[in-house]
Nucleic acid binder design. Structure first.
Ligand SMILES: [Zn+2]
Ligand SMILES: [Zn+2]
Ligand SMILES: [Zn+2]
Ligand SMILES: [Zn+2]
Lengths: 163, 163
DNA sequence: AAAGTGATGTTATTCTATAACGATTCAGCC
DNA sequence: GGCTGAATCGTTATAGAATAACATCACTTT
């Protein structure tokens, strides 16, 4: 065990948000797709913490900001766009969305989800990718979208629980 | 690549069902829990194929068998029992349930889900378990419930698609 | 039989996601 | 500027998945 990830330690989270938004701008303009105001706002809301956020939570916060509430499709369309661009992930085990911390990698990644503090950390652990590839190959299965979501306790919450 | 799993090949599926039901009887009586008629019926419905089945599909089939339809809680309670006993799995990426083919192992297992024929195969690939354990350990995360669901094409459907 | 526990039935509700259609905005062109 | 097609967003209604709360039934123990 080396070091707990940034997400699990106190840190200046504004840096995370700023970096994510800037990176998203760049990425979208490079691809010729439009990071509209709504999409940017949704991305910012998803990034407001390292805890996955439900679509209806996003909806709620949007409606509080604006005074009126858009329909669910408005939020889901923005999320679909962000998913397509690889800027957020959807965690199937939580029905919730999380800002992507590894937009440079194409693959699925692995997610470690703390049942206590709800923080989710994204990894790009190639040995896991390879192990899954090997397992699939052993039965002739062609992998398209691997999904790894691990529920457990983050480093921080382990020490708290021990106390 | 050695051999495609039974689930992906033509086989006498009655054997699968019989074995699963008998094994479930044994397991439950050994633990002093009751595999009631309803629970057995739900288990049998889940085992009717190697394709994960939604709770509302089970509900539908129950209602067709009986002429009247119970409420969703009836089905979900039976499924909860079967999940607790490790007799079925829930696939979060599909919101669907699948008979367990490895009741002897406690762990989560890995699931290979064919997007074409919808068959899902459960593996117990220790190298994958270990890789995940190692990835988690590297950031001080304590694994409790690893979840691996891989979408792709099974061996059978690859040859079909190539044709 | 009486009481207690577990299992099931029933109704209503919550949470998540999508379908369908209309209105708006934007980019490129006349 | 004004026009046009395409993308985006708004709005309403609906589908799909899961649970809450409470009543009833069954099975066991005394
Ligand atoms: Zn941060
Ligand atoms: Zn934690
Ligand atoms: Zn079979
Ligand atoms: Zn297949």
């Amino acid at each position: 065990m080396s070091q707990a990830p940034l997400a699990c330690r106190p840190h200046n989270h504004d840096h995370c948000v700023d970096h994510a938004l800037q990176d998203a701008e760049q990425r979208c303009s490079a691809r010729g797709v439009r990071l509209t105001e709504l999409r940017k706002r949704v991305l910012e809301l998803v990034w407001q913490s390292h805890q996955p956020l439900g679509a209806y939570d996003i909806l709620e916060q949007l409606s509080q900001q604006d005074g009126r509430r858009p329909g669910p499709p408005t939020v889901y369309r923005a999320l679909d766009f962000l998913l397509e661009q690889g800027l957020v992930h959807r965690l199937a085990s939580l029905n919730a969305f999380l800002g992507c911390t590894h937009p440079e990698h194409g693959g699925g990644g692995q997610f470690l989800i703390c049942r206590q503090c709800r923080v989710a950390v994204e990894l790009e652990h190639s040995a896991t990718d390879q192990a899954i590839a090997q397992a699939a190959a052993s039965v002739g299965f062609a992998v398209e979208q691997p999904m790894v979501e691990v529920l457990g306790l983050c480093a921080r919450c382990q020490t708290r629980e021990g106390a």
